[in-house]
Write a protein that binds this DNA or RNA. Structure first.
Lengths: 113, 113
DNA sequence: CGCTTTATAAAGCGACTGCTTGACTAAGGC
DNA sequence: GCCTTAGTCAAGCAGTCGCTTTATAAAGCG
């Protein structure tokens, strides 16, 4: 279930998530598809700025877009999200396992006394 | 088990992870503590550059440092890692649940025919 | 005490970001 | 054929990032 990506892609995905407007867009897309104009509505910034944010999400694979009449609906791509999550979990797992071994070792030492 | 952080902190954590040198440092710290000089050894860049990377990791809470003789050993703080992971998992969960509901709905429609 | 080791502080530089404005394209509705 | 709707392209600008060089501090060793 672990998905591995090259460094370049991980760079891009984490960089994309390092902006609260883009995280907000991702969160909203996790509730369903939306057009650019719908996505832009809640923000004070221009439509162009939101379009650029969506562009960042698209380029790193977090979002894909279709075509429907004049609109280009955005949808979340959970695979890219999963790869970032997997990377984090892997580091956390290694750290936790090491701590568990350390604790077990200390308990052994205590038992020996 | 879900840890929530404010936007500002999430910005910082994801931005910190958006650099492969820093991800590399995190991965190595997940295998155990290390001093700055130890961390810097594998890279071609200067010690100062690595110190700045560690500073970024420290400021966003991913790393903490102690004191031992002249060294200031770095250790991973898995909580900050967990919060970033939780944010990702939450979005993925929402998307997956929505897809499951959608699929169930489509199956219902098919059964009705 | 000086000398080395370990680390931090500050300034500078090229590259990149987030956002704006202004101009443009493409699809539909009248 | 025009006008609106939905979106893109491109240039510009202030601010930040990654890294360097240079200088400095603080702890241990001879």
């Amino acid at each position: 279930m672990t998905v591995t990506l090259d460094d370049e892609r991980l760079d891009a995905v984490f960089a994309a998530l390092a902006d609260r407007t883009r995280r907000d867009i991702v969160a909203r897309l996790s509730e369903g598809e939306a057009t650019l104009t719908e996505l832009a509505a809640p923000y004070e910034m221009t439509l162009q700025a939101v379009s650029q944010h969506v562009g960042v999400l698209e380029r790193c694979g977090l979002v894909s877009r279709g075509r429907h009449r004049q609109t280009r609906p955005c949808r979340l791509e959970p695979l890219a999200l999963a790869t970032a999550g997997s990377w984090i979990e892997e580091s956390r797992r290694a750290w936790t396992e090491r701590m568990d071994r350390l604790e077990a070792h200390l308990t052994d030492l205590q038992d020996d006394r």
